[in-house]
Simulated assay, not measured.
Amino acid sequence: MHAVLFVPAVYLLLLLTPFTTSWWAAGSFLVMDPNQTCKRARWQRGKMADICHNKPGLLNQIAKGVALAQTECQYQFRYRRWNCTTLRRSIKKVMLRDTRETGFVNAIVAAGITFQVTRACTKGEQIGCSCSKRKKKRNKKKHTNPPLPEGDWEWDGCGENIEFGIKKSKDFLDNRYKKRSDMKTLVKLHNYVAGRMAIKNHMRTVCKCHGLSGSCTLKTCTRKMPTFREIGNRLKERFDGAAKVIPGNDGQSFMPEGETIKPPGRVDLVYSEESPTFCEPDSALGSFGTKGRVCNDTSQGEEGCGILCCGRGHKPHNEEVKVNCNCTFKYCCEVHCDVCKVVKKINTCE
């Protein structure tokens, strides 16, 4: 069974060396050292280079955002044949293609950077931003997303500045693609937007009351992001329903592969290549196969032995694990437990 590795916060999404012959490959890899990334950008200009050269605090938050995204990818894909592992550069090789998996990784990375930068801004980190300032009095006629609460209330002075997070995510990921319109770039940029919209479209309004003895003489409200787990869940749903697209007739857009398929919206994930099965080891594809993976013999889902084992069958065996047992409460206030060994039945793919 192959272990899922969690990636340090210094991992970043960016370029390979300038000697790479494939422009697409160079723009798709996850580079492990942000210092090396910025060294490669030292002769470049633009917003990404400006972050590297002049904004170390912001660069650090971007790195944390990429690490957050990779951890969430590994959680969301923990039962899939390809589990978003970084072992032996698996994710790097997967990103060379334009599959559904690639689309999800691009979306979750854009979301991770947006989320982390926005949260750092709210916490007062020195990254060149301020919290979101809003008018104290609400405009009853204006439609907003999320909808505004009923009754009399005022905006709190400081909300989560999602627009700043989105802008810095664009500066770091999108900016250098602006003059390109090839198919893979269009798909990449679309999925970046979908990742950010998974946050922006689901901001929630949180209110609290002020007054003596629990009264609500004044209610103040502010906007908050959803949790990153909610964002990951939402993007995983989009991954399951991702649309395959082909180049449009104008050479600067894409359209659904099938005529009866609804054109994807900004929140939908898209891809242009079919995914490999990931059933067998293939170093060129970043696949380790699924032999030895733990599966659930009672499930019909993606973690079930039928799907995860690719029809090869599975083998049950026992595994000894340690658990707390015979726990007693001692006044006051401690709980004492013994450590017991129990045998747990698990199934692994043949």
Rank of each mutant, 00 (worst) to 15 (best):
V94F: 04
F77K: 00
Y79F: 13
R88K: 10
A107V: 01
C84W: 01
K64C: 09
Q36A: 10
H53S: 13
N106V: 10
A107N: 02
G103R: 01
D98V: 06
I91F: 09
Q61V: 04
A25T: 15
T37K: 07
N60T: 12
V105C: 00
I91Y: 08
G65C: 03
T102Q: 06
V31G: 13
R97N: 06
Q61I: 00
C73P: 03
V66C: 06
G57E: 14
I91M: 08
P18A: 15
V66E: 02
T20W: 14
H53G: 04
Y79P: 00
I62A: 05
R100L: 03
R89W: 12
G103V: 00
N35E: 15
F104E: 06
K55G: 04
Q76P: 09
Y79I: 00
T71M: 10
G65E: 05
I62E: 05
T99R: 00
P18S: 15
T99W: 09
N106L: 09
C52D: 03
L58G: 05
N54A: 04
F29R: 05
K92A: 01
K55I: 01
H53D: 14
G46R: 03
T86K: 00
D98C: 05
V94A: 02
N35Q: 14
N35F: 05
G46L: 08
D33L: 11
K47L: 15
P34T: 11
V31N: 15
C52W: 01
E72C: 07
N60P: 01
D50F: 08
L87V: 12
C38G: 04
A69L: 10
A67F: 14
L68K: 07
C52Q: 01
M48N: 08
I62Y: 08
R45L: 10
T37E: 07
C84K: 02
R81A: 03
E101G: 02
A25M: 13
W43I: 00
Q70S: 11
W24Y: 15
W23N: 14
A49D: 04
A41I: 03
R97A: 05
F29N: 12
L96Y: 11
Q61A: 09
A41E: 15
T85Y: 00
P56Y: 03
R100Y: 11
W23C: 12
S28N: 15
N60W: 13
L87T: 12
C38F: 01
K93M: 09
D98L: 04
K47N: 08
Q74D: 12
Q36R: 09
F19R: 14
A49M: 01
L30N: 13
I91K: 02
V66N: 06
T37P: 00
A25F: 15
A49Y: 00
A63Y: 06
E72S: 09
I51E: 02
M48V: 04
R88S: 06
L58H: 08
G46P: 05
F77E: 05
G27M: 11
K39M: 07
W23S: 14
N106D: 13
W43S: 12
G46M: 05
